[in-house]
């Protein structure tokens, strides 16, 4: 039993049929419990007041925004090397979810930043990187939509994803170089698990788990959708031939 068996679309659909309900249940359970716990039953931070509660949305979504990119990178590599269609379609499926996560991270960050930093947006390297990521997700999705042939689109977007990843790292470094240290007073040290008290830590962990599960669930559903869309395209093409 090897992992590559799931590269067979039929096998993929059959397996996800079984596991998807569990993922849905896990997502809803973790998110509902985590967010309610975070919103209603955690104390305020002595410096930031109740805004600390935004952390339960901000940190998990930011994490997933980056992880979605990583997943797309790995899926693109698998497509380029082993040419499994499911892999390319999974990369395509992850992009809209990644964009939603980036949007949540940016918006909650702006809402959080307004009272704490005094302004919603600062050209802090971290914020700028996320804006960059957002733009890149849009380009990636538009390129997928612009190309009709699925194999061509998968190849082009995979190449773009690889090159883009190199430039993402380069840009991250460039942002640090360009504006480092200006907003270090930002209380983002709460990100570090060591700095965060247990009362905040456990609900945060639950929310992170919820976002991870949400991402996996949505990507699975979307991948199934893309597999079906591809099959439909093939059937229609065959009809035209006859």
């Amino acid at each position: 039993m090897s992992l590559w068996e799931y590269a067979n679309p039929r096998k993929f659909i059959a397996t996800t049929d079984v596991v998807l309900p569990w993922f849905w249940a896990g997502t809803i359970a973790c998110l509902v419990v985590g967010l309610i716990w975070g919103f209603f039953f955690t104390p305020d931070d002595f410096r930031q007041g109740s805004t600390v509660k935004i952390i339960y949305l901000h940190v998990p979504s930011a994490l997933m925004a980056i992880n979605a990119w990583l997943m797309m990178l790995v899926a693109s590599l698998i497509w380029l090397i082993r040419r499994h269609h499911v892999s390319a379609l999974a990369a395509k499926a992850a992009a809209p979810v990644g964009i939603a996560m980036t949007l949540i991270a940016l918006l909650t960050g702006a809402i959080w930043g307004a009272p704490i930093w005094g302004k919603p947006w600062a050209w802090d390297p971290r914020l700028t990187s996320f804006l960059w990521l957002f733009l890149f997700y849009i380009g990636y999705i538009v390129l997928w939509q612009a190309l009709d042939d699925m194999d061509t689109a998968a190849d082009m977007t995979s190449i773009l994803c690889l090159v883009g990843s190199v430039f993402a790292l380069l840009s991250r470094y460039a942002f640090l170089f360009w504006n480092s240290g200006l907003h270090q007073e930002a209380s983002l040290s709460l990100d570090k698990e060591t700095n965060i008290a247990d009362v905040f830590y456990y609900p945060l962990l639950l929310c992170i788990a919820g976002f991870v599960l949400l991402f996996i669930t949505l990507v699975l559903v979307r991948t199934r959708m893309e597999i079906r869309a591809r099959r439909m395209k093939a059937l229609i093409a065959r009809e035209r031939m006859v």
Binding site: T51, L57, L107
Partner: peptide, 12 residues
Amino acid sequence: YATEVISAYVVS
């Protein structure tokens, strides 16, 4: 900070 927290949750 009620407005900020609630709007963050609503938006997300």
